[in-house]
Amino acid sequence: MTAVTVVSYGAGNVASVQFALERLGATVRLNADPGEIADADRLILPGVGAAGYAMARLSDLGLVAPIRAFARPLLGVCLGQQLLFEHSEEGSGTPLLGLIPGVVHRLEPGPDRPIPHMGWSRLSTVRPDPLLDGVGDEAWAYFVHSYACPDGDATLARADYGGPVPAVVRRANRWGCQFHPERSAAAGARILKNFLELPA
């Protein structure tokens, strides 16, 4: 059975991620110990709420260095995806983990475009990737966010919300999902299953 470690740092939707992985038959370890995080086969970094608070928690727990150095599959979910980038506009500016270039920016509300971007949006695949195997080009995913990652070389799939929203990103062994795969029905389950099957 595949083992996966979920970073449990007090700024994440840990239980719902845990349950989704357990539904797929994975052995889930919730952990915030720097040594055990460094030794994990694969790592999920969840996150909801403010980027500044999340980074402060990771820093207080001594997890910034082990996550940055992690060389096996790493998946950031929602805020966890944003944390992979360099910097966020959130608050008065927040330095992030710096694993993918670019700045996370605020989404602006518009006519028929309330913020947070909350609800189901269609994914359109930009380029194929093992994480997206079997996920149809018009799969639906559940988003909840007020900030978005920069659209660039790392983007694997986009959603459209008054402009392109990077929905799935990847750089080397680090992947991110802006939406919540644990709450995205069949498409989300397939993405988590694909992550569990990536060679560690």
Binding site: A15, S16, F19, A20, E22, R23, Y142, V144, H180, E182, R183, S184, A185, A186, G188, A189
Partner: peptide, 11 residues
Amino acid sequence: VRDIARLLDIP
């Protein structure tokens, strides 16, 4: 709440 969270794959 936990039992419901375990059951659902929607928000």
